[in-house]
C-alpha cells in the first residue's frame, strides 16, 4: 500500500498494512524545511507548495496538508491579513462590525488570482503516491474571523440572532472553498472549527452556534469529498455530537483520551490525532514522542490515523518529527 491508499483505507474503515501517519505539517512548520520564513510562503503559493512537498519528502509520512495561504476566504473577501516573519497570520481589521455590514459578505471565488495553485501543485507532486488534504474553516470560525473573536462571542448573549445570520452568511465560504479543493484533487477536506472547542465555548453554545452549520456545510458537500472535522484542545464534551455531523473523521487533540473518544463516537467514524503538538513535539524529547506515539498506537483500532492534534510549530526539533514517523511505523504495524 502507498500512503494515499493507507490513508483512504483508514478513512473508510478498511484494513491498512500499517497505521497511516498524517501530521498537521502546514504553513507554520513546512517553510523551515526549505529555509524560508513563514510569511514568504504565506504570500507566495509556489513557496508554500515547495515547502509542504519538501517536508513530506524529508520525513516520509503518508499525507500532506495543502495550505492555501492567501487563498483563505477572509483574505479573499477583503479582510486585511498581516503576516510578519514567522508570526501567525493575523486579521488586522475586521470586515463586519454589526448587522449593517452583513451585505459586505459575498461568496468568495477560491480560484480567483491563481490562489488554488499551491494546492494543485501539491496534488501534482503527490501523483497519487501519498494523500493530499485540503483545509477550510467552518462557517462558525469564518464568522469569528471576519467579525473579530471578542465582538463575535460577546454577541452570543447580546444579539444571538445576528450571530446566526453572520454564520449563515459565511456558510458559502466554507462550501465553495471545500468544493474547489475537491476539484483541485485533494483526497479529503479538513474543516477546522477550533473556536468551537470546549476550551473556548460551552457545549451548549457549540450545539447552538457551531454544530448546525457544520451539519449544513457537510450536507451541502454531499459526499463529493471526505470530510475530517478538526476541533482542537478539549473536544471531549462534544465528541458524540461531532460524530453526528456527517464527517468521515474527527481530528482530536491531546486533551482527549482516545479510548474515551472511541466510546463517545462509536465504531463507525475514523479518529485522527492526538499527539500534543507543543508539549510533546515542540518542547519534548524523542523519548517523549516515542511514549506518546506508543500510547496512541495502543489505543488505535482499525479506524485511526496517527497525527499531531494541531499544527506543528516551526520551532519543533527535526528529530522529534522524524521520531513521530519512525515510531508510528514501529508501533503501528
Amino acid at each position: 500500500m502507498n500512503g494515499r491508499e493507507r490513508f483512504l483505507a483508514a478513512l473508510a474503515g478498511e484494513p491498512a498494512d500499517t497505521l497511516p501517519i498524517v501530521p498537521v505539517v502546514d504553513g507554520f512548520y513546512a517553510p523551515k524545511v526549505i529555509g524560508r520564513d513563514n510569511d514568504e510562503c504565506f504570500l507566495d503559493g509556489d513557496c508554500m507548495a515547495a515547502a509542504l512537498t519538501a517536508a513530506r519528502e524529508r520525513y516520509g509520512y503518508d499525507g500532506i496538508l495543502a495550505e492555501m495561504g492567501l487563498g483563505d476566504p477572509p483574505s479573499v473577501l477583503g479582510c486585511p491579513v498581516e503576516v510578519q516573519g514567522n508570526d501567525v497570520p493575523l486579521v488586522v481589521e475586521t470586515l463586519v462590525d454589526g448587522p449593517g455590514d452583513l451585505e459586505k459578505i459575498g461568496t468568495p471565488d477560491p480560484w480567483a488570482g491563481g490562489k488554488m495553485e499551491p494546492v494543485q501543485k501539491v496534488v501534482e507532486a503527490a501523483a497519487g503516491r501519498h494523500a493530499v488534504l485540503g483545509s477550510v474553516r467552518s462557517p462558525f470560525e469564518y464568522a469569528a474571523t471576519v467579525r473579530g473573536l471578542a465582538g463575535f462571542m460577546t454577541d452570543f448573549y447580546r444579539d444571538p440572532d445576528f450571530v446566526h445570520r453572520l454564520i449563515r452568511a459565511m456558510l458559502p465560504a466554507t462550501v465553495v472553498t471545500a468544493q474547489a479543493l475537491a476539484q483541485a484533487g485533494v483526497d479529503a477536506v479538513v474543516i477546522k472549527d477550533s473556536f468551537a472547542s470546549s476550551s473556548v465555548i460551552s457545549p451548549d453554545h457549540y450545539r447552538e452556534f457551531a454544530f448546525p452549520y457544520e451539519v449544513e456545510a457537510i450536507a451541502e458537500l454531499g459526499g463529493e469529498v471526505p470530510v475530517i472535522l478538526h476541533i482542537c484542545r478539549n473536544s471531549g464534551p462534544i465528541l458524540a455530537q461531532m460524530a453526528q455531523t456527517g464527517a468521515d473523521a474527527l481530528e482530536v487533540d491531546s486533551l482527549v483520551d482516545l479510548a474515551a473518544a472511541r466510546e463517545a463516537v462509536g465504531p463507525g467514524i475514523t479518529l485522527k490525532g492526538n499527539i500534543d503538538a507543543v508539549a510533546v513535539l515542540e518542547k519534548g524529547t524523542v523519548a517523549d514522542v516515542e511514549a506518546a506515539v506508543r500510547r496512541a498506537a495502543a489505543a488505535a483500532d482499525g479506524r485511526f490515523i496517527l497525527s499531531s492534534g494541531d499544527s506543528i510549530p516551526r520551532e519543533t526539533p527535526d528529530e522529534n518529527l522524524a521520531a513521530l514517523v519512525e515510531y508510528g511505523r514501529k508501533y503501528g504495524s
Partner: peptide, 11 residues
C-alpha cells in the same frame, strides 16, 4: 465559564 461568559462580564 467559557470565553463568551468572560466577555459578557467584560462588557
Amino acid at each position: 465559564y467559557f470565553i463568551p461568559e468572560m466577555l459578557r462580564s467584560a462588557d
